[in-house]
């Protein structure tokens, strides 16, 4: 029965992607892309990838859609027809597709327990990680401890994106710079009341996700994004000027490096204790406690970095929308 559900979801995914090719109205393209991300996340849930569905839903559908919408608000909605023929493009696409199909012939079949993927490295993550690291959520223990350097690299990627966006668009320093006359969704009184009720709930849920990441789906990335989404909701319903008053862009710009340094400091502490970089066993007398401390602190570092970067990027984009709207 779940196979049938898989098939329908996959079919819907392909249909949405096809439709996106032919739509010229960018607003609809972004809306369909939002649906595409949601479908991807739903598919990940049916394929047992719970943390990934969490991230795809919050980061893919949440942040990407909001950024694209604010870009379109400035660059206009209609896509002009391109004149040159698409034979070259179809040629390349068919070539790549053919190579991929050629590659799928010897691929191990879907879902078999004795695939090479499950044999060499994975059994240790599944059997010994609950005892060695003491976390029920194996994905978090692999993410934070076994391959902790990957996650450190990922936090630096998020930081690099922040550097890129700040240097390109420039985050407004002082709140006064933002024009005062612009108001949020003023006439939507009902929306403002409901937003006022739901924002504390969202922030509470973000904190739950941050510290629940060891036991259930969740973790630093998802929590950072959900917390940023709460402030984005506040900025959208009430005016950007008010949101900037609550969390100023300067604070956000300086918070991102602090998150990355917090992550790196855990590694340095384990180096000073004589072990290798990011080795949490030396953080406490008992290795398993050390793992717990290490994972909680780096998840916090990741959460702070992702929260400040996502909010900083939103401020940069919303600032541009304000500037363009005023002219």
């Amino acid at each position: 029965m779940t196979v049938l559900i898989d098939l329908i979801l996959l079919a819907m995914l392909v249909i949405t992607a096809f439709r996106i090719i032919y739509i010229k109205d960018l607003f609809s393209v972004v809306m369909l892309f939002g649906i595409y991300s949601f479908l991807c996340a739903a598919l990940f849930v049916t394929l047992d990838a719970v943390d990934v569905a969490f991230t795809e839903a919050s980061v893919g559908a949440g942040i990407s859609t909001v950024l694209m919408l604010s870009t379109i608000a400035i660059t206009g909605r209609k896509e002009k027809l391109s004149l040159h023929s698409h034979t070259f493009a179809t040629l390349i696409v068919l070539l790549t597709g053919g190579a991929l199909i050629y590659g799928t012939f010897d691929m191990p079949l879907f879902g078999l327990a004795d695939n090479p993927v499950h044999e060499h490295v994975a059994p240790r993550y599944i059997e010994t990680s609950p005892t060695e690291i003491g976390l029920p959520n194996m994905v978090t223990s692999v993410l934070a401890s076994y391959r902790g350097f990957d996650t450190f690299g990922e936090t630096v990627v998020v930081f690099a994106a922040a550097i890129g966006v700040f240097s390109l668009l420039g985050v407004r320093g002082k709140p006064t710079e933002l024009l005062a006359q612009e108001q949020g969704l003023t006439q939507h009184k009902v929306l403002r009341v409901v937003a006022k009720i739901s924002i504390p709930l969202i922030i509470l849920f973000a904190l739950y996700v941050q510290f629940h990441g060891d036991f259930g789906p969740g973790g630093g990335f998802q929590a950072g994004v959900i917390a940023a989404a709460a402030f984005i909701l506040y900025a959208l319903t009430f005016s950007l000027r008010k949101a900037v008053g609550v969390v100023s862009p300067r604070f956000v710009k300086y918070l991102a490096p602090v998150g990355v340094l917090l992550y790196a400091s855990v590694g340095l502490v384990s180096m000073l204790n004589g072990a290798n970089f990011l080795d949490y066993n030396v953080l406490a007398a008992d290795p398993v406690d050390g793992q717990h401390y290490g994972i909680i602190i780096i998840e916090l570092g990741v959460g702070i970095t992702v929260f400040s970067v996502m909010l900083g990027i939103f401020y940069a984009f919303a600032g541009q929308v304000e500037k363009a709207n005023v002219q």
Binding site: V50, G62, T65, V66, L185, A229
Partner: peptide, 20 residues
């Protein structure tokens, strides 16, 4: 938890669409 995140992001997406 994932269903809760869905409801959240759907609401925020809705507000963003209306605003922009």
């Amino acid at each position: 938890d994932i269903a809760i995140v869905y409801a959240l992001i759907n609401f925020i997406g809705m507000v963003a669409v209306l605003r922009f």
